[in-house]
Amino acid sequence: MISLNVNGKTEEVDADPATPLLYVLRDHLQLNGAKFGCGLGQCGACTVLVDGRAVFSCVTPVSTLAGRRVTTLEGLGTPGKPGRVQRAFIAEQAAQCGYCIPGMIMQAQALLERTPHPTSTEIRKQMSGNLCRCGTHMRILRAVERAAREP
């Protein structure tokens, strides 16, 4: 059994130590916010936070997470009470198909936790590893800027 801290809760998971965190989140814990995109750490749809930093959960073995804090999209808010970054993404209608958006939100969350008032260059740099095939990048950038403005 592997013990994990996810969204502030301790979870016991029966999985092979090399299993990617993404599979554990989705298949064992039914936390389906993080998405499977490429499975190769190239698209960012699976982004979650580990100790406040954005990581690709599809290439993060679950055995590396003992004693570390994992935060997923579900840890930021609920449909009834979305978090600050989630509210900004809704307000800017950043989603087209929406598949990349959970990863985008987590990447933005990681940025704002460390840099509350980022420049537009800093935002672009941080978000550059997350791909959106619908092409809503401008709305996504606006959403991150809005989240940075709001309390």
Binding site: P17, A18, P20, G39, L40, V59, P61, V62, T64
Partner: peptide, 9 residues
């Protein structure tokens, strides 16, 4: 283990 989960894919 790290290799299998992070690199092998």
């Amino acid at each position: 283990e790290v290799y299998a989960g992070a690199c092998a894919a």
